[in-house]
Design a protein around this nucleic acid. Structure first.
Lengths: 147, 147
DNA sequence: TATTGTTATACTCTATAACTATA
DNA sequence: TATAGTTATAGAGTATAACAATA
């Protein structure tokens, strides 16, 4: 017997709405630690995660045009959160790397965001938390980038 | 015996990251239907959901300053997506309401976003979908606004 | 006077086009 | 010539301050 397994037609819209709202709250409540905009924090996090990157690679990763990334990096550099260095073999290329200060700032930002969510999770029963934890790997699969 | 029920220390950060990423993808892939920016779509959705609202209420709901909301509403009105009307009893007050065109545009936008998510859900096994659906009410609780 | 909304002005983020330096 | 990055310029979104209309 062939079993067709349709997606419950309610699931996708409800999931979409819930995710959009949670993300918005996280953003509104705790973005811009030390006055850093979302843009700057996001770029900084990418530099941290993906290691030294050229400006072009960084622009692609952040889905921003190169001139925008020039400005972003200039600001981050001005605050001492990243350092820029010129490639010795090809002097057109600039590489960007996070500094210790940059890493500390990211750490603070993450802690704040996580705290908000953790606080809400504390209002859940152990059973509820177990359900959420079971779904977590699936949410992580949904989150995987694939374009 | 007292049972302390600590939140698994990994859950909050993983959930935060997964949600932020899914939300970002949904935004990047399908926001701005008919060239409308996220800002405009968000305001329009609030007007739709919460019915006729004054500019001030709307500004508060969207967490924007009144002058910003004046501009947003002016743009939406220019496109025929909302209509504005002056309160008869207190003529300082302006109320904003969604139009049929506005409702149609929102509908299209939601359909697109849901489609992307539904497509990904189709790659899940029935068991996996069941796990996700079980977690959905909990995510919805997390999404509830409480400030 | 107090309140609702608007106009004036400035700053951030982003883009495209034109440019510079290097290959 | 082609490529990596920058500078010039413009548009959207937002904010604060000052203002107008109404209560």
């Amino acid at each position: 017997m062939l079993t067709v397994t349709p997606v419950n037609e309610d699931t996708a819209p409800r999931l979409r709405l819930a995710i959009a709202r949670i993300a918005r709250q996280l953003r509104q409540n705790v973005d811009a630690p030390s006055d850093l905009s979302t843009t700057l924090v996001s770029a900084l996090a990418t530099i941290d995660r993906a290691g030294p990157l050229t400006l072009g690679e960084l622009a692609a990763a952040e889905r921003v045009q190169p001139p925008s990334m020039t400005r972003i990096v200039t600001k981050l550099e001005g605050r001492g959160l990243v350092s820029r260095s010129i490639d010795r073999d090809d002097r057109r290329v600039a590489r960007v790397e996070i500094t210790a200060d940059g890493r500390r700032l990211l750490q603070r930002s993450r802690t704040q965001k996580t705290a908000l969510l953790a606080q809400r999770l504390r209002t859940f029963t152990p059973e509820e938390r177990a359900v959420l934890e079971a779904a977590l790997p699936l949410l992580e699969r949904l989150a995987e980038e694939r374009r």
